[in-house]
Design a protein around this nucleic acid. Sequence first.
DNA 1: GTGAAAGCGCTAACAT
DNA 2: ATGTTAGCGCTTTCAC
Lengths: 346, 346
Amino acid sequence: MNLRRHDKPKATMRDVAWEAGVAQSTVSHYLNKTATVTPETKRKIREAIKKMDYRPNMVARNLKTRGSSILPLFVPDITNPFYSELAKGVADAARRKGFDLVLYDTGYQRNREGDYIEMALRQQAGGLVIGYNLLDERLWDRLEQTSTPAILIDVYPPNDLWSSVVVDNEEGIRIAVDYLSRLGHHDIAYLSEPPYLLPLIKRQREFIRVMKERGFEVRREWILVEKQQVNRVKIGFTLGKELLSSPLRPTAVITSSDLVAIGALNAFLSSGIKVPSEISLVGFDDIILASYVHPSLTTIRQPKFDMGQRSVEILMKLMSASDQETPVVEIIPPQLIERHSCAGVR
Amino acid sequence: MNLRRHDKPKATMRDVAWEAGVAQSTVSHYLNKTATVTPETKRKIREAIKKMDYRPNMVARNLKTRGSSILPLFVPDITNPFYSELAKGVADAARRKGFDLVLYDTGYQRNREGDYIEMALRQQAGGLVIGYNLLDERLWDRLEQTSTPAILIDVYPPNDLWSSVVVDNEEGIRIAVDYLSRLGHHDIAYLSEPPYLLPLIKRQREFIRVMKERGFEVRREWILVEKQQVNRVKIGFTLGKELLSSPLRPTAVITSSDLVAIGALNAFLSSGIKVPSEISLVGFDDIILASYVHPSLTTIRQPKFDMGQRSVEILMKLMSASDQETPVVEIIPPQLIERHSCAGVR
DNA sequence: GTGAAAGCGCTAACAT
DNA sequence: ATGTTAGCGCTTTCAC
């Protein structure tokens, strides 16, 4: 590391000061607006900067201020559209605050999590954005020990020391059920990936609760929850097929995520079942793919971009707090995105 | 920026040295293996490090060595699966070399490109990975001026000063045509997004050339190239519909990218045309979505992950070269991924 | 094998 | 309004 080519020496602030015939600190003051500078002096400095093609060295600046202008984002897999959309929101907000987004893609590997946090800390990161549930829970202690603030997205904090931004999972499910209900459905199935995360548990639990509350029957064989597989599209496919093999067929299905919905869609289509005329389908997340499949997927949107942005704002507040701020769990409202995978029941 | 909380002071190398009862430089030597150290001294240092929870400060290190451990990656849109897969490859290779991947998502906005390059340079980045064609061509001069090496991916260099990693576009098209040909197709259409990039032009040109070479007729109305729209799925949809309205219908179609193929697929399906039984479809890129749609898409894979990795290796070489290295254009072979969107012609 | 000292490019008191 | 000075935490000669 730290390679560098045989480059022309970069101009430093000292060079600029010399060229402009002023003191280095004056240049610094001018650049940082940390003192007022005569118009005439300003001019000279500006010219010198241009002439020398001067560029402030953030590394030196950061060393001096003991700060850092990088903002680490942890995701388990950047190729998952959910996380890439999140990353976009985080990057955008970070940029606005003058931070550079450093991407740590852990690939769902425990040991990488620790290594990457170590790297982030060595880079003097003042805070972390974590887009999923860390596999290695001991890391929370490590972070606390170094008093590094962090914010979680899309999952609930491991304990009351940490903050997070999550969508209102229960509300999302309610919106889905009520939407289908309005279309005349009451035979509704629920397909889910393994619920090892609280949001997933909440969705499932709320589905059952609201179905009962609305007076709809909740059939055991219509609540299909995967235990083994990890590929969400495959899960949806498997569960979709399984659902079709049931003697009673629901008129609609809600899934725990869009990826599962897409798998289910493929299962239905490949069995000759028409969507939405024979069965309606609503997903969860609203990833970009949802609008790409045919029929396009009606779904419950998690405003990922906004959540990414919001998380940065909260983190910045935590970082600048002179004392341990009270952690916050911010709940974001979900939103129904109506597309073409649902139809009224005949 | 440069926020920081009221944190407990981090241990420095000086603290460690003091604790271990040795000189700071000895600790440095131990850490960097830049001199041999007595086992006994090693032990003391190790213990001090552990006791104080010491972590090297990369910012200070980078200032001293005038290096940088960040590697900027420029993409136009990280939510585009093509770029997120690329990013994964780049991040992976960067990490292996001890670099942190900094993500610059320009959102296809000219002015951001300049701003972001400026930020990257201020961070003392020693080289850049650019995953697409910069919109603002003047930036190449700026980069040259600062003698910052860069490597392009998926596009050809603007001139012979720069390096890039690209797939063999012609070969990809040949593979597609020959594959369809083997299935008995010779009435093949080609649908393309606006060919403002050389790879796209090459694909189109090669399609025509190889069709002729194989003795297949090339019909004007079967070569549909979008001029206006930017959303590739919409483009595919529009072009797909247009193709269906033509009096003569081809038995197969090749598209300039998977996103276009997915749009075309939707167009066919929504017109009641069965894929692959009535029309075969092959895409280009092999983005993750290709395997998610129904029927899953047969396509020409660009090994994005590998290309990302390779680009980092080449860039590192350029960065460490003491003198202007001769630029390279590395051609990567594409690969046919057979799925379910193609069938033999009856 | 270990240590003393210089300094990377910058900010921030503190003077003037 | 501008300048002087003292480091930030580290690497790297160069002595010993």
